[in-house]
Amino acid sequence: MVTIVIADDHPIVRKGLKSLFETEKDFSVVAEANDGFEAVNVAQRFNPNVVVLDLILGDINGIEVARELSKNLPRTGIVIYSMLASDHYVMESFKAGARGYVSKDSSSEELIRAIREVAAGKRYLSARLSEQPSLGEMITTNSPDFYRRLTAREREVFQLSAQGLTCAEIARRLNISRRTAEAHRANMMRKLGFSRPAALYNFAFQHEIQADTAPVKPGTAKKNRKKSGQQV
Rank of each mutant, 00 (worst) to 15 (best):
residue 118 V to Q: 08
residue 41 N to C: 00
residue 204 A to M: 10
residue 25 K to Q: 04
residue 50 V to L: 12
residue 132 Q to V: 04
residue 131 E to C: 11
residue 109 E to I: 11
residue 97 G to M: 12
residue 8 D to L: 02
residue 210 Q to C: 15
residue 66 A to E: 04
residue 146 F to R: 15
residue 199 A to K: 06
residue 159 Q to P: 00
residue 108 S to V: 05
residue 178 R to E: 14
residue 226 K to Y: 06
residue 169 E to I: 08
residue 14 R to E: 04
residue 129 L to I: 05
residue 92 E to S: 15
residue 54 D to T: 07
residue 84 L to M: 09
residue 186 A to R: 08
residue 212 D to H: 15
residue 116 R to I: 08
residue 30 V to Y: 01
residue 164 G to C: 09
residue 114 A to H: 03
residue 204 A to G: 08
residue 81 Y to P: 02
residue 28 S to R: 08
residue 225 R to L: 09
residue 29 V to H: 02
residue 62 G to C: 15
residue 123 R to F: 00
residue 153 R to G: 03
residue 32 E to Q: 11
residue 24 E to T: 14
residue 54 D to Q: 09
residue 219 G to I: 10
residue 93 S to V: 12
residue 160 L to M: 12
residue 6 I to P: 00
residue 63 I to G: 14
residue 38 E to G: 03
residue 160 L to T: 07
residue 158 F to R: 15
residue 101 Y to L: 07
residue 203 F to L: 15
residue 50 V to N: 10
residue 47 N to K: 12
residue 213 T to R: 07
residue 66 A to Q: 09
residue 28 S to I: 04
residue 28 S to V: 05
residue 112 I to Q: 09
residue 167 C to L: 09
residue 37 F to Y: 06
residue 203 F to G: 14
residue 172 R to G: 03
residue 14 R to M: 06
residue 9 D to S: 13
residue 53 L to V: 04
residue 87 D to C: 06
residue 24 E to I: 13
residue 165 L to P: 00
residue 37 F to V: 05
residue 94 F to H: 11
residue 124 Y to D: 04
residue 179 R to M: 09
residue 215 P to H: 06
